[in-house]
Write a protein that binds this DNA or RNA. Structure first.
Lengths: 198, 198
DNA sequence: GTCTATATCAAGATAGAC
DNA sequence: GTCTATCTTGATATAGAC
């Protein structure tokens, strides 16, 4: 059983979700085990029955963020049957995972790498590479269809950077919702005027 | 005199530069005042003759990163006389400031916001906004010239996100140098095949 | 301006009762 | 499985000599 991603223990999952929010809001280093305990109604010492260390919680948060997003992207791609719709799925799934309600885990995955020990990194890199491989496939198909240029590896990194950065400025309570943002960013890529709502 | 950005004290500047590298490599929270002292050959206590707190060092690093980059962009733009060259200057200056030799300060500015106290943020926001205003002006001119689409505010955020993210994957020792990267990223935007070297 | 020495505090983690 | 209590460490910052 894949301990990184799947976890059928309710208490553990509850803790991981609470940790995701705290790590996102305060940063991993500034979040204390006492904060984590408070968030789920436990004393700080009790956390260590469920996790060996604070870092193990971080790794669990990150793994959850990236595997969930990957699963959602796979599901969305299987419903799309042309390159244009697949491109749209990339943007929508990624932004909803990053900016949607209670979706802190992916953001932690993106911005807390420095706190992950060398020992824990390879497992997370595998998960991240799997996600990015989906992106690469879709972009290559789009390039073959003439929708985007042929420099798809750089394009992948460029687009993912653009999307990742949205957490720094986008506020869901604003005038624009997440799906609308996805449409507008896709329109920038394709040089279309953004469509009304599809 | 603007204490945030300009500093005519040599010792202070030496410290800020060393701190920039450490904060980038280890992260602000994981860098200790002992690390900072070691880097410049001082005992940790001696730092507090030059700075009131560790956070004051962080703010100085960030202010240096963004003001230097702004100055370099202003200089580059004043040498460019058409929208296309001004666009190219945006990319080149930003990437060289972010990825060039001993250019850690801007990266710290981008990735350590969470460690800046509410009291210190407004001063930095002013500096950042000044930089982004330069970007906005250039993009608006480019849109007027038909080089890019008209959604320039979103485009600005999208492009800056792409550039900021390069620190996560670009390695200057690789086959591609920073100016070449800038050209290729500009080519993506303009949908050109990247030119050889200009 | 830099040193030595240390005050002060909070962090992650553990032990053993329940 | 969770609690209370605490161990141990390492952090920022200060005081006062030089």
């Amino acid at each position: 059983m894949n301990n990184l991603a799947h976890d059928h223990n309710n208490r553990r999952m509850e803790l991981v979700l609470a940790a995701a929010s705290l790590f996102r809001d305060l940063g991993y280093e500034r979040t204390t085990v006492r904060d984590l305990g408070n968030a789920v109604g436990l004393q700080s010492g009790s956390l260590f029955y469920h996790f060996r260390s604070k870092e193990e919680i971080l790794v669990a948060v990150m793994a959850l963020g990236i595997t969930r997003t990957t699963e959602q992207l796979e599901a969305a791609l299987s419903c799309a049957d042309n390159p244009r719709d697949k491109l749209a799925a990339l943007f929508r799934v990624h932004l909803n995972s990053l900016l949607g309600e209670n979706q802190a885990a992916l953001e932690v995955m993106l911005y807390e790498w420095r706190s992950v020990s060398a020992a824990a990194r390879p497992g997370l890199v595998v998960l991240r590479d799997r996600y990015e491989a989906l992106w690469q496939t879709v972009l290559d198909e789009a390039a073959a269809a003439g929708l985007v240029g042929s420099d798809t590896r750089l394009l992948r990194r460029t687009l993912l950077g653009s999307l990742h950065w949205t957490v720094q400025w986008f506020h869901p309570e604003g005038e624009m919702d997440v799906d609308r943002l996805a449409d507008r960013m896709l329109a920038l890529l394709l040089r279309e005027e953004p469509s009304s709502t599809c």
